[in-house]
């Protein structure tokens, strides 16, 4: 029993060494997330801002918040697992962007070209 707890303690030290679960890291990430969440909700719920500017701002804040979560909560860095988690993350981010923006792009043009009975020739314009 004593031995077991001893090894556990040694392991926990070794295990968490590369992952740095610090109170400071979590609290900073949490406070940043609160700010990055509250501002978009406030902008949309008051509704007193230009919709275009609001849309751009809240998308930018979402991207920022995803990065904050990835670094401070998921503890992604270039050295963990020999850099392979970062490689997988970048690869996934590229695929996600291609899937989402590609789908929207294609379907938007498809919709534009399928516009029924518009009469003013939607193809060339």
């Amino acid at each position: 029993m004593n031995d077991a707890t001893h090894t556990d303690a040694a392991h926990s030290h070794g295990d968490t060494h590369g992952h740095s679960f610090t109170l400071r890291g979590y609290v900073i990430g949490f406070l940043l997330s609160v700010v990055l969440t509250a501002i978009p909700f406030w902008m949309v719920m008051t509704g007193s801002f230009d919709p275009q500017a609001t849309a751009i701002t809240i998308i930018a804040f979402a991207v920022l918040q995803i990065l904050v979560h990835t670094v401070s909560f998921l503890h992604l860095n270039s050295s963990s697992e020999g850099g392979w988690t970062l490689m997988a993350y970048i690869f996934t981010a590229v695929i996600v962007l291609i899937v989402i923006s590609g789908s929207l792009w294609i379907m938007f043009h498809l919709n534009a070209n399928m516009m029924p009975m518009s009469g003013d020739g939607g193809f060339g314009s």
Partner: peptide
């Protein structure tokens, strides 16, 4: 990691579904 990942997905949900939807 699973739990924090779900929070990351939720950032996308509240931004692109709810906030942009209401806008």
């Amino acid at each position: 990691m699973f739990w924090h990942f779900l929070d990351v997905v939720w950032i996308g949900v509240f931004t692109f579904v709810y906030l942009l939807g209401v806008l």
